[in-house]
Amino acid sequence: MKKVSQIQTLIIDGKEVGGKSDESILQVAKENDIFIPTLCYLEGLSDYGGCRMCIVEVKGMPRLVPACTTLIREGMEVTTNSEKIHNYRLSILALLFTERNHICSACVSNGHCELQTLALKLGLTHVEFPYIFPKMPVDATHDRFIADHNRCVLCGRCVRACHEVEGAHTKDIMGRGITSRVITDLKESWGSSKTCTSCGKCVHVCPTGALTEKGKSVAEMEKRRQFLPYLKLMRERR
């Protein structure tokens, strides 16, 4: 039996909007052209709630909540932006920039990078924390793709795309905290992976230049993600 979803009305940034009860604040905001910055969220993949960029304020809730995983409720009053939220987002972005190596001028994804776009859009002018610059490996063993861990933001999109859409579960995350890293199979080189179908979905869902196609020079790597909402729609209809 299909679950019947109820229609709920709520207020986002002073605007009265409506949505279905199984929709998240982020989805409803998108439908109504209200911008909430996101990084780990991607339409067509499961919600992750890891990047904390989409944090919003909901009246009556003691804490800031991520818009991607919080379902709407009747009469909810959501504030998507305030000075406090903006500053938190800037700090989180700054932390991401210090975490690894994000030198845009030398990156194949320059100009097509979601991290870069977010920084520009939110007006991140400088980074107040010291850069960590860990020494991370680059895996170029695959015939067509490269994994450059120096550019990775650990958003987990590749892991989810590989598991949920392709069904291969080649990618996963190992380690803890700051030393976490995306791995192929049981930390093997990508080229020798027996489970990888070389579909390239992980490459195209990656927001930065961490997963790229071979043969691209600086600023040449454009990601094509149109397939995701399409696949999702087709699967839902089936």
Partner: peptide, 21 residues
Amino acid sequence: CMTESCGKCVPCRDGSAQMYH
């Protein structure tokens, strides 16, 4: 906490490392 953070969310993963630093 830095070494025990799971690494999923940015503030805990990176913030703890910066605080430790």
